[in-house]
Design a protein around this nucleic acid. Structure first.
Length: 280
DNA sequence: CCAAGGCCTGAATG
DNA sequence: ACATTCAGGCCTT
């Protein structure tokens, strides 16, 4: 009898979804928006504020999802190998900024930039006798200058970050609304933000806005698809244009189903581990 | 609609 | 040492 409720914390945190996490002794500590989460080995969450979070999406029927996405040998292997890997439901604004920062970058640098952003613009909080800087509120970034944001090592993304924060602050984008509408509608809205393209939009939708059919296609996923699904998805072109991204996504949904985002996370994790890439 | 080039930055590679 | 390449893209031409 398989216990589907089991969560593998290490694999989940080290799968490119979140960046402001660190392990101290037997606990993982992480910044989730305006809050700090502390997680023990059993996946039990306590928070600085006392608020409750379904951070690991326990309300999802994981058994049903695993069965639903296990459509081929490769996915079955990934799901088995990284059993307990979960998608995370993270703070939308932090996720939004994090993946704008992530574009054309790598995990170590994303982490470093986000730490600097938190330290510069976020509140310092003591929790468990440790110091943390929580993620800044939209207003705080929206009122900053490009130079201040650039000092966090984000380069040309500084303007994107500033404008994105302004868009959220002015309520042109309302994450609670995006959660209610469907994937395609929400994606169209997110894509209107400068600095956000298909891949970044899908990350935001999948990791913070409950759109499980989002399937971020980055260099790694393209590499994976070419390796294991070459004929199935007919990947003959070198670069993925906007149109090709859309067409490919449709084929992916047809194959993996509506929980494709989960499949993506397992495949991504497996391939990165195969190449022994570092995480946090 | 597609292809090519530029872009901040820091670590890795030659 | 120093130059070049590359990294979880996006935008403009």
């Amino acid at each position: 009898m398989i216990d589907f409720s089991k969560i593998n914390l290490e694999n989940t945190i080290n799968s490119g979804q979140v960046f402001l996490w660190k392990k101290q002794k037997e606990f993982w500590y992480g910044i989730n928006g305006q809050d700090i989460l502390k997680i023990n080995n059993f996946g039990k969450i306590t928070s600085y504020s006392g608020n409750k979070y379904d951070f690991f999406r326990n309300s999802d029927d994981i058994e049903k999802i695993i069965k639903s996405i296990s459509k081929d040998k490769t996915t079955k292997l990934a799901v088995e190998k990284y059993f307990g890997l979960r998608l995370i439901r993270q703070d939308p604004f932090q996720c939004f900024i994090s993946f704008i920062v992530s574009s054309n970058s790598n995990i170590q640098k994303i982490k470093s930039s986000l730490e600097k952003i938190s330290m510069k613009f976020g509140k310092k909080i003591e929790f468990d006798n440790k110091e943390f800087y929580i993620f800044p509120e939209p207003k705080k970034i929206a009122n900053a200058t490009i130079q201040e944001i650039q000092s966090c090592g984000v380069g040309y993304r500084a303007k994107f970050i500033l404008d994105a924060a302004k868009i959220v602050e002015s309520k042109q984008i309302d994450f609670n609304y995006l959660k209610k509408i469907n994937y395609k509608e929400a994606k169209e809205i997110i894509l209107s933000v400068p600095g956000i393209g298909n891949k970044v939009a899908d990350c935001i939708l999948l990791f913070s806005l409950d759109k499980l059919e989002a399937f971020p296609l980055d260099r790694w996923m393209i590499r994976i698809l070419k390796k294991y699904y070459l004929e199935k998805f007919q990947l003959e072109t070198k670069t993925i244009t906007e149109k090709q991204y859309e067409v490919l996504h449709e084929k992916i949904i047809k194959h993996f189903g509506v929980y494709a985002g989960y499949a993506q996370q397992f495949l991504f994790k497996m391939e990165r581990e195969n190449y022994q890439k570092n995480w946090l």
